[in-house]
């Protein structure tokens, strides 16, 4: 989706920070697994402190919500051809089946359309593949131009 490969390289360097340097994503242990233009894949580890129902041991839906929100946002950034700030406008999540106890959750997102001001995404959360999804999401994000964004991300280079 990106028409500017050099810019995508910059995004690729900067993208792990969108997850690693975000306190909430950090507390939940999210990590970025893969990044392509307009696409992102992230993982949430199974953590006992994020269980929603102690009797079943199943992770709370709120973790899936946060993961889908995060990975969708990253897919938007991966689709940009110039630096813009992104803000979630809305996110709809459909829960298909509960996550399995003790297993990590993978989420992949794609930004399938972008205008100057709005980006649209869809995302899937699963353990193994999209054939057996835990939840799907569709989102929209507002885009805003950042004035004077430096070409160097400032991360130790």
């Amino acid at each position: 989706m990106t028409e500017n490969p050099d810019f995508f390289d910059l995004i690729r360097q900067y993208a792990p920070n969108i997850i690693n340097k975000v306190p909430y994503a950090n507390t939940l242990g999210f990590e970025l697994v893969d990044l392509e233009p307009g696409k992102a894949v992230a993982r949430a580890p199974y953590k006992p402190e994020t269980i929603g129902d102690i009797e079943t041991g199943i992770i709370h839906g709120g973790v899936v919500t946060a993961l889908l929100d995060n990975v969708s946002g990253v897919s938007v950034i991966a689709a940009l051809s110039e630096m813009k700030s992104t803000a979630t406008l809305d996110l709809r999540i459909d829960y298909m089946r509960p996550a399995e106890v003790g297993r990590d959750i993978i989420a992949e997102a794609e930004c399938y359309h972008m205008t100057r001001t709005v980006a649209f995404t869809r995302a899937w959360a699963y353990h193994e593949s999209r054939d057996r999804v835990i939840a799907t999401a569709s989102g929209s994000f507002a885009l805003n131009t950042i004035k004077g964004f430096p070409t160097n991300t400032g991360e130790g280079s």
Binding site: K21, V22, P23, Y24, A25, H60, G61, G62, V63
Partner: peptide
Amino acid sequence: EKIIGNPSIRALHGGATGAF
């Protein structure tokens, strides 16, 4: 501090707001 989503503008994470 742990529910921050954007450290540069000190905004809460959308996932935290959503889960709440």
